[in-house]
């Protein structure tokens, strides 16, 4: 028979847990809205950047002197994987699913005999990868989203990646992040940053060139100062933008995942409280009945 006092203590503790999880849910919901707005606000830049880069890249791709960021370093022996996760836990399977994808990728690259380096953005990714692949982690960047995610921070990461690439430390760079669909659905996406991979749809458009829309887009641009100078300025910026976009998506996904997780936790806590209260009341009544029987039988015996 459970002790009445113990039950009371448990109910209270579950109640305070529920309070915490429901507060976390509210906070996550508010942050999610902000993160979503930020992600949406950053989209125009990324789109226009892509448009510009698409037309430039198509022109420069075939040439011999194309920048390395576009054409690659000529081999693919060393891969850098940028694993973007959250700094904090309690957001359901968010971090785990990103890390799982990263592990899968690392394993298949290692099986192919490639060298893998890992750059962790976010503490949780590092914590989970450290045990198996600790010696591959080049650096961990923490607190990118504190106090808020700014382009400066993303561009610092981008510049770091570019300088590593220029120093010949890796050949291919892929970023793994969770793309935000909705509060209950985040899709883990690997995206190749270096060499630059133009979006598939645009590739076709460039080839058709003089199509309905292509008439204008495919027109010959003048380049000032020169094509190469612009490309060499545009490509690193593009990497920063892609990192920024990934991190924004990730932030929105994190808050979405946390909101859902905390919603579930709150509901589970409620259920648990109901069950415990039921047991508590039953126990209490059993005790009262027991006492009554004792009193009555004592009286009858007299």
């Amino acid at each position: 028979m459970p002790n009445l006092k113990d039950l009371k203590v448990r109910i209270d503790s579950v109640k305070s847990t529920r309070k915490i999880t429901s507060a976390m849910k509210m906070v996550a919901a508010a942050k999610l809205r902000r993160a979503q707005e930020q992600a949406e606000a950053s989209r125009p830049y990324a789109q226009r950047m892509e448009r510009m880069l698409g037309s430039l890249a198509a022109a420069a791709a075939g040439q011999a002197g194309a920048p390395k960021l576009l054409a690659g370093s000529g081999s693919d022996d060393t891969h850098l994987i940028l694993v973007a996760t959250a700094d904090r836990g309690l957001c359901g399977g968010f971090n785990t699913s990103i890390v799982r994808e990263a592990r899968r990728m690392i394993r298949s690259l290692l099986d192919d005999g490639k060298t893998v380096k890992i750059l962790c953005v976010g503490r949780k990714g590092r914590d989970q990868l450290r045990r198996d692949y600790g010696q591959m982690i080049v650096e961990t960047i923490e607190d990118v989203a504190k106090p808020s995610l700014s382009f400066d921070k993303a561009s610092a990461i981008g510049e770091r990646v570019v300088s590593m690439f220029e120093a010949g430390e890796f050949d291919v760079c892929t970023m793994i992040y969770a793309e935000f669909r909705s509060a209950i659905s985040q899709i883990v996406t690997p995206q190749q940053l270096i060499p630059f991979a133009p979006p598939k749809a645009e590739e076709g458009e460039e080839e058709t060139g003089a199509g309905s829309n292509g008439g204008l887009e495919g027109a010959v641009y003048e380049y000032e100062p020169g094509e190469e100078e612009i490309l060499s300025a545009l490509l690193p910026t593009n990497i920063s933008i892609q990192v920024f976009k990934g991190l924004l998506e990730n932030a929105a996904s994190e808050h979405g995942a946390r909101m859902t997780a905390m919603d579930n936790a709150t509901r589970n806590a409620g259920e648990m409280i109901n069950n415990l209260t039921l047991i508590y009341n039953r126990t209490r009544q059993a005790a009262i009945t027991g006492e009554l029987i004792e009193i009555i039988s004592a009286k009858e015996a007299m």
């Binding site: 606000a41 125009p44 830049y45 920024f244």
Partner: peptide, 9 residues
């Protein structure tokens, strides 16, 4: 004319 920064339009 459009002026865009990474953070917003």
């Amino acid at each position: 004319f459009e002026l865009v920064s990474p953070e917003r339009l």
